[in-house]
C-alpha cells in the first residue's frame, strides 16, 4: 500500500483529518505537500506537534513531497497526502505521485469563488486543474469525513450548494 488518501484541504492537518481520516484509513504517514508551509518554520513545527506519536509526518514543497512519495521509503507506508489546492494536486500528479482518487475536503479561503457545497468553493483555476486531473484518469469527489456521502464534483458543480 502506498497512498491511502489524497486530499485537497486548505486547512491541511486539522481535526477532520486526524480524528476521522487517519483512523479510518489506518494511516502510518502524513505528507503535507505545500510550498508556503515548507518555508514557514512556525507552521511546520505546529503541524508536526498536532500529530500523535507513532505517525510519521513529512512536510515539504511539492517537489520534495513528490520525491518522497515516489521513493521506496514513502511507498512502504500507508500514506495520506494533503494539498492546499487542486493546482498543487495536479503538479504532484504530473511529477509522478501515484493517486487514482482525489478527495476534496475544504476549499474555502478566497473571496469570489463559486460555492458548490458547504465547505468547497471553486474558482476558474481550480476547475481547470480538476478537469486536467480527470482527463488523466483521476476520480474526483467531495467528502468532508468518511461517514459523509461522497458527491461527484461535476454533479456538485452543476447543482450548487
Amino acid at each position: 500500500m502506498a497512498i491511502v488518501l489524497a486530499r485537497v484541504d486548505n486547512r491541511l492537518i486539522h481535526g477532520q483529518v486526524l480524528e476521522a481520516w487517519v483512523p479510518s484509513t489506518r494511516t502510518e504517514c502524513i505528507v503535507v505537500a505545500n510550498n508556503r508551509v515548507a518555508e514557514e518554520e512556525l507552521s511546520r513545527l505546529l503541524m508536526a506537534a498536532a500529530v500523535p506519536r507513532g505517525i510519521r509526518v513529512v512536510i515539504g514543497s511539492i517537489e520534495y513531497a513528490s520525491a518522497f512519495l515516489c521513493s521506496p521509503d514513502g511507498q512502504a507506508l500507508r500514506t495520506l497526502v494533503l494539498f492546499d489546492s487542486p493546482a498543487d494536486a495536479l503538479r504532484a500528479h504530473d511529477l509522478g505521485v501515484p493517486f487514482a482518487e482525489l478527495n476534496l475536503g475544504n476549499l474555502q479561503r478566497l473571496e469570489g469563488k463559486k460555492r458548490v457545497s458547504c465547505s468547497v468553493a471553486f474558482d476558474q483555476e481550480d476547475i481547470q486543474s480538476l478537469n486536467a486531473l480527470e482527463a488523466q484518469g483521476v476520480k474526483i469527489h467531495i467528502q468532508c469525513v468518511p461517514s459523509e456521502r461522497q458527491r461527484n464534483w461535476r454533479v456538485a458543480l452543476a447543482s450548487g450548494c
Binding site: H14, G15, E19, A49, A50
Partner: peptide, 25 residues
C-alpha cells in the same frame, strides 16, 4: 518578528486538530 494575521493563520489548523482530538475525541 511576525505579523499577527500570519501568526493566526499558522495556529488555527494545528490548534483545531489538537483541540478536536483532545476535547471531542
Amino acid at each position: 518578528l511576525i505579523d499577527v494575521v500570519k501568526f493566526k493563520e499558522a495556529l488555527v489548523g494545528p490548534c483545531a486538530a489538537m483541540g478536536d482530538g483532545f476535547f471531542w475525541g
